[in-house]
């Protein structure tokens, strides 16, 4: 059975249809990418899944339970964690506190939560930065902190919204490595929105393409990148070369 099932979800902002009857299924243990040009509705789709907005139509199922209409904190408690495209750390708190607060969802004892946070921080190469405030981090570190905090909630499924954007190629490769490790060693299913095709090609087993709020293609990275409509609307002619 699929871990996440999105059934014909639709979201309208006044006249604009931001997400138009999008359906997708993500298998447990998969790495699934959602791509598409800016304004295609990717982040809105994430917000619908994570409970930030109610759907105007359609349904979202996570692990068999219907979650659309649930509050974000309830969705997270079920094991579906997300990161924000524009990173939202707790700026005045230390890196360690940021992640420990995530860990407190499953581990109510603060001391134990800080210990759990340490493990996560080490995994994401942030342990050396633990005493710094989140506000003082560089962008790549903030992106990693965003992933660390979400991961600390011990999710079954991680929604990653452009965690590679703004990273240098070496940093991207490191993030790809980290995500693969999270996926393989901890069995966390990953759904990512990504513009960095290098990362998508390296990570994703299945790719879903949105354009103007609607699904235009789905398949393996190879299949999708050969799809004429995807090339026309998103990848551009240079991708053909």
């Amino acid at each position: 059975m699929s871990l996440l099932r999105v059934e014909r979800v639709t979201k309208r902002f006044r006249g604009l249809v931001a997400v138009d009857a999008v359906s997708l299924e993500v298998e447990k243990g998969a790495i699934f990418a959602v791509i598409g040009p800016n304004g295609a509705g990717k982040t809105t789709l994430f917000n619908l899944i994570a409970g930030v907005y109610p759907c105007d139509d359609g349904a979202v199922y996570f692990d068999g339970a219907r979650i659309d209409g649930m509050a974000p904190e309830a969705v997270c408690a079920l094991g579906l964690a997300r990161t924000f495209q524009i990173v939202r750390p707790f700026p005045g708190l230390t890196v360690h506190e940021n992640v420990a607060i995530g860990a407190m969802l499953r581990q109510p004892k603060p001391q134990a939560a800080f210990a759990e946070a340490e493990e996560v921080l080490r995994k994401l190469d942030l342990w050396d930065r633990r005493a710094q405030t989140a506000a003082s981090l560089t962008l790549p570190d903030r992106k990693r902190l965003e992933v660390a905090r979400a991961l600390a909630t011990r999710p079954g499924l991680l929604l990653l919204d452009e965690v590679m954007a703004g990273l240098r190629p070496t940093e991207t490769d490191r993030m790809v490595e980290i995500l693969r490790m999270i996926n393989r060693e901890e069995g966390v299913t990953i759904v990512l929105i990504e513009h960095v095709m290098r990362a998508v090609m390296a990570l994703a087993e299945q790719v879903h393409v949105l354009n103007h709020g609607a699904s235009i293609a789905e398949g393996s990275p190879r299949e999708v990148t050969r799809h004429p409509q995807v090339i026309a609307s998103y990848l551009g002619a240079e991708a053909l070369g």
Binding site: C76, F90, L93, A152
Partner: peptide
């Protein structure tokens, strides 16, 4: 810690399971 999280960013607090 939940208070601090809510103070710093309520939206992010919700995303880590805190009932704001």
């Amino acid at each position: 810690y939940q208070w601090l999280a809510v103070r710093e960013d309520a939206e992010a607090a919700r995303a880590v399971g805190i009932d704001v």
